[in-house]
């Protein structure tokens, strides 16, 4: 994706066509994708919480049963040992599924993509101003920034799979993905030109400077800025 703002469409679309396409794109691409991310975020959160809670509960129960069994000198509660072992295996199974689906990682990908889409949607004029807006100018920019976000999401997903594959000690080819901050800058550049990017960078730097706590020189213990706590370009290994 070039850093220069995309040229306005040189198509032979009429104004009516453009308005129609604009609404279609909003509905079919932006909103539906946003709904998809929302659903997936909720589902991943639910599963992550469920497996963590369930495996913790099962492990606690397993330890409890093992302790009770060991504290019985007569050995009449010896059968509890077997339940303890089975529960441990059950907890291990839940952990296995947790690593398999890696909900937390998926959650981060979908959350970033949703935020990226919301950022891209800033280009869309408010409903009240829609009639006065030049759809012919807004539409190509909206497509460029939205597709950038969606492409990055797909690449991240591909990277996620490749990282899982890497766990199996197979050579992988690195997929290029961009961080949220860079994505934001690109969207702003695509939408409003290089000046906007510069002003955003300055604004971010000012916000970071204002929000950063005083530096403890002795320990060099500055809290990382927003940019450095962003998701790494290389996602962490799954599981």
């Amino acid at each position: 994706m070039s850093d220069a703002p995309p040229p306005a469409s040189t198509s032979i679309h009429t104004k009516g066509d453009l308005e129609f396409l604009f609404k279609l794109y909003l509905n079919k691409r932006v909103e539906s994708q946003m709904n998809f991310y929302t659903t997936r975020i909720r589902e991943n959160e639910l599963n992550s919480d469920f497996t963590f809670t369930a495996s913790t509960f099962v492990m606690t129960l397993s330890s409890l049963l093992a302790t009770i069994s060991a504290s019985d000198p007569a050995g009449s509660l010896r059968a509890l040992v077997i339940w303890s072992a089975i529960l441990s295996a059950l907890a291990a199974m839940l952990e296995g599924f947790r690593q398999l689906y890696n909900w937390d990682r998926q959650l981060a990908i979908y959350r970033d993509a949703k935020l990226g889409l919301e950022r891209a949607a800033l280009i869309i004029p408010d409903n009240d101003l829609l009639d006065q807006s030049d759809i012919g100018a807004v539409y190509p920019r909206m497509i460029a920034s939205t597709e950038l976000v969606l492409t990055n999401e797909v690449n991240q997903w591909g990277q996620f799979l490749l990282d899982k594959e890497k766990q199996n000690e197979q050579p992988v080819e690195r997929i290029q993905t961009i961080g949220t901050e860079e994505q934001r800058e690109r969207i702003m550049t695509d939408s409003y030109g290089p000046q906007a990017e510069q002003s955003v960078t300055q604004e971010t730097a000012a916000v970071n400077a204002a929000s950063a706590p005083p530096t403890d020189a002795s320990s060099n213990g500055t809290v990382p800025s927003e940019a450095s706590t962003e998701k790494d370009e290389t996602p962490p290994a799954a599981g």
Binding site: E147, V154, G158, L161
Partner: peptide, 25 residues
């Protein structure tokens, strides 16, 4: 796993081209 990732990425790439073509981008 590798085939799943590859085919999904390509399918989504086509979806992107679908909208670009429709919009004359």
């Amino acid at each position: 796993q590798k085939r799943w990732g590859n085919t999904r990425r390509l399918a989504e790439e086509l979806r992107m081209h679908y909208y670009k073509y429709l919009s004359h981008q």
